[in-house]
């Protein structure tokens, strides 16, 4: 027991001179000292706090900017949300565009109770989102509008702007022809410098840049809604152009005056009959070259 006490005190360097003597006299004293000395060679590698502190401070500096570990994921989420809202906003500002093909008619409902019927080869654009602020459609081709009562409603065409306040009217804008017919209510047409107000039955027709006077319209809706194209004193080429649109064919006209005025109808659902309707009054002959080409010639 005495031995253990001595060794313990020696380990803690607490031996007094008397005890030291006793410790030195231990039989395994040399072994103990040798072990103790040898163990010293297992010392930890050199460690200099000053150098280590420098590198820790550097690392802290580096990490302190991105110290808040929640910032990064938050930035990610913010970016995703931004993109998402960006795309949805972009989509919402895009115009809705509706196109009809040749010999196709379609009826669409505009964002309010208004609706529009598109004739063949017509394109109509409007913006769903801005509709409450601005009732505005862009039209190329021919369409019949039934406009719900409310604020100003504009139909913008290449040739002019047609504005209304709840009414029914037809707008036809083709290559050389711009025709507005009012069926109900009051329609204003701005065409170049002209500004005309149309009462029910009134028409506004511009043909090859010239204003054409037209009789009062007696029908309550345009005839094309009933699959009949009706012409009154129209140049024959306009009739042929409409025929091409309705039947999706191309019509070749032989030597004849295409500015001849034509008054009459043709139906949209019977090509043979329709051809007869437009050729007989002018003493023309027609022949089908192939499925999509028709040749007209004078007798």
């Amino acid at each position: 027991m005495k031995r253990e006490e001595l060794i313990k005190k020696w380990l803690d360097e607490e031996l007094n001179p008397m005890e030291l003597k006793a410790f030195n006299a231990l039989e395994d004293h040399d072994d103990l000292v040798k072990l103790s000395d040898s163990v010293k060679r297992f010392a930890a590698p050199e460690y200099t706090p000053e150098n280590e502190l420098q590198s820790v401070l550097q690392k802290i500096d580096h990490s302190s900017t991105s110290n808040n570990s929640w910032v990064k994921p938050l930035i990610g989420i913010a970016a995703i949300l931004t993109i998402f809202f960006g795309i949805s906003y972009y989509n919402s500002t895009l115009d809705t565009e509706i196109n009809t093909l040749a010999s196709e008619k379609t009826k669409i409902e505009l964002p309010d109770a208004s609706d529009a019927t598109l004739n063949a080869l017509t394109s109509l654009k409007f913006n769903n989102n801005r509709w409450t602020n601005k009732r505005e459609v862009k039209l190329e081709g021919e369409a019949f509008f039934k406009v719900a009562k409310g604020s100003r409603f504009d139909v913008i065409t290449k040739d002019g702007i047609v504005s209304v306040l709840g009414t029914q009217f037809n707008v036809k804008q083709r290559e050389n022809l711009f025709e507005v017919v009012c069926y109900e209510g009051l329609v204003a047409v701005a065409h170049g410098d002209n500004y005309v107000k149309l009462n029910p039955g009134d028409s506004y027709v511009i043909l090859d840049g010239k204003l054409i006077a037209k009789e009062k319209e007696t029908q309550i809706t345009p005839s094309w809604l009933d699959n009949i194209s009706h012409f009154e004193s129209m140049p024959f080429k306009e009739v042929v152009a409409e025929f091409e649109r309705q039947y999706n064919v191309s019509v070749t006209i032989g030597s004849m005056d295409t500015t001849l005025l034509f008054t009459g109808n043709f139906k949209h659902n019977d090509m043979d009959l329709a051809l007869k309707s437009i050729t007989l009054p002018l003493n023309l002959k027609y022949s089908l070259k192939n499925d999509s080409t028709i040749v007209l010639s004078s007798e």
Partner: peptide, 14 residues
């Protein structure tokens, strides 16, 4: 750091 780092290091090493 100066007070504890060396002891800590040696403790970890041993």
């Amino acid at each position: 750091f100066n007070r504890y780092s060396k002891d800590l290091h040696n403790f970890l090493y041993y």
